[in-house]
Simulated scan of single mutants.
Amino acid sequence: MAKVIFLILASEIILLLSILSSSGLIQCFGEEDDHGFVRTLDPKLLGLSARKEKLSHFQVYWHDIVSGRNATSVRVVQPTNLTATGFGLISMIDDPLTEGPKLSSKMVGRAQGFYALSSQEEVGLLMSMNFAFTQGKYNGSTITILGRNTVFSKVREMPVIGGSGLFRFARGYVQARTHTFNQKTGDAIIQYTCYVFHY
């Protein structure tokens, strides 16, 4: 009798686990992560399987203003031994992003983050910033850029490592080209051409 009850309970547990596993609430045995806090999800649960991934291409102008009363780039770390490459200098940014190269052209968002002079051999930046868009259907959406920018190279390429809003699950790259650089003030206008895969 006990053997029969055990077999009935065992079959009910297996059936229950099968139902929970197929619904995505738990994983099948053998797929569980060793740590217990990570699990695999079916993309359908987030509505992703029905949506095709898109490739968006756009161009914006990044205005890095270090001079004057309304600077958008502020030095937060000054190295004690300033070298020719500025190694160790860190600046926080809240730079305007515009459609055209003039600061008076339509603003589409802001580049917020920081850049650090991270090379002893050349003027090379570590850039970490979000392009936070403020216009139209992209208002509130962001892409995140993290990479190396050798500022005197004609074209610099940096990866897009993520995003939010309409750029959720973003990946891709940007190409930066210097439009203008004022050697007296340090102000710069950089053209960013962006290629972003997203849902």
Rank of each mutant, 00 (worst) to 15 (best):
M1C: 02
L9R: 05
I13Q: 05
L16G: 03
L16D: 03
I19T: 06
L20M: 14
C28Y: 09
C28G: 13
R39K: 15
D42F: 03
L46P: 01
L46R: 04
A50N: 11
R51F: 02
R51S: 10
Q59H: 00
V60H: 12
V60L: 14
W62A: 08
H63N: 11
H63G: 07
H63T: 06
H63F: 01
S73F: 00
V77S: 06
P79R: 04
T83C: 03
T85V: 06
G86F: 02
G88K: 07
M92S: 12
I93T: 13
D95I: 11
G100N: 09
G100A: 05
S105A: 08
Q112R: 15
Y115K: 05
L117D: 07
S119N: 14
Q120N: 10
E121A: 14
V123N: 14
G124C: 12
A132W: 10
A132T: 05
F133P: 07
G136F: 01
Y138Q: 03
T144K: 10
T144G: 01
L146P: 03
G147I: 09
N149Q: 09
K154F: 12
E157H: 03
G162N: 01
R177G: 01
R177L: 10
F181L: 14
G186W: 04
Q191V: 11
Y192E: 02
V196C: 07
H198L: 03
